[in-house]
Amino acid sequence: MSVVLIVDDNTPLAEDLAEILADAGHRTETACSGEDAIRRVLRGGIDILVLDLRMPGMGGIEALRRLRQTGVSVPAIAMTAFADEATKVHGIEAGIRAVLDKPVDYARLETLINQIAA
């Protein structure tokens, strides 16, 4: 069973996404900022990241970059409410498997997580 960390400053959304993925059979945790996410990942045990690209303070891209620098290569799915950001980020960050537009297509999120977890 994979552990998915969902990172979004919109906490109720992060909690809902966690619940949706839990229903799909994954273990989930949530974090509410880039810094928070880095701290949690470095403690170990996280298999997949789902993270918002734009958050107050440290955004998703910066958080991923720092994790990569420390040698952590957890696969990630990015989410963004800014359509133009989705095209910019694609392929830049190794380890970003997909960029989902917000509002999130939950079925697609489930499929992607299942694929990565498999």
């Binding site: 919109n10 109720p12 959304l13 809902d16 996404l17 619940e19 949706i20 229903d23 409410a81 917000k102 509002p103 999130v104 939950y106």
Partner: peptide, 20 residues
């Protein structure tokens, strides 16, 4: 618009869960 997207996102994710 951007502000409203957050609550709308939560409404829709909650509706998705509620549907089940």
């Amino acid at each position: 618009g951007h502000e409203l997207r957050n609550p709308l996102g939560v409404i829709s994710s909650s509706a998705y869960l509620l549907r089940k």
